[in-house]
Design a protein around this nucleic acid. Structure first.
Lengths: 126, 126
DNA sequence: CCGCATCCATTATGATACTG
DNA sequence: CAGTATCATAATGGATGCGG
């Protein structure tokens, strides 16, 4: 059934599951990296994205961008010229998510050494 | 827009790639959901985790917890009793990561309706 | 009984070649 | 240049078994 769009979803199991699903889709490795690149430049072309996200394949980049477009995170602009020219830019929604992810990047930069130390200790322990 | 906030070593390509790798490992779907559950209760047993993270398989839960333990995010405590009793708890590092992910959860709760509307609009256009 | 490792079917991902 | 199609490979889930 449909629920009215209330802001107080506190501990509703249904909403909680929807939020979990959304987190699961948005907290994808490639999505995060693409958001990070798009957040630092207003508009980025497909090739530039492929270059800026090291290790991503064309298929995954395409799929990730389509998914983000469908979720309203990015706006895809096609310029009908030859050769083709396609720009990707974050929407307001996407910028909000990028801002929400900012502390995660800060955490990763700050605690990278600790994580590597923990890994070394764990590997030595076994 | 403005110049993005950078740390002292954010412009180092090597560190940038290490941070990307760390993000890629930590921004896993199951890792995030497990962190969320562990952040709300001090100690959680394996079975309780499997129940609290809907849709996860036992194998993925085991693998996710091992990886998080190796990265120093969780501490695994085995009580040698019968039946077995294994508690998982976030370390200080894990709590920091949970706190960093907090805005992402807030964003997901706040903008869930917008994402669903964007999906409906995208699906209608195609 | 609980945690977790192993076998197999399904799916997701990567590398390459090709089209508009 | 942007995106698709195809095939090889790795990741994942489900069921089962086993030790404590």
């Amino acid at each position: 059934m449909e629920k009215p769009p209330t802001t107080a979803y506190a501990d509703n199991p249904d909403v909680d599951r929807l939020v979990s699903d959304l987190i699961g889709r948005v907290a994808d490795k490639w999505t995060l990296l693409v958001i990070e690149v798009l957040e630092q430049a207003a508009q980025v072309r497909f090739g530039a994205l492929a270059r800026a996200v090291p290790g991503i394949s064309q298929k995954m980049l395409t799929r990730t961008l389509r998914q983000m477009e469908r979720d309203g995170l990015v706006r895809r602009t096609v310029h009908p010229v030859i050769p083709p020219h396609v720009d990707y830019a974050l929407t307001a929604l996407g910028h909000g998510l990028a801002a929400a992810f900012c502390p995660v990047w800060t955490w990763a930069e700050t605690h990278l050494a600790e994580v590597e130390a923990a890994r070394a200790a764990f590997d030595a322990h076994t």
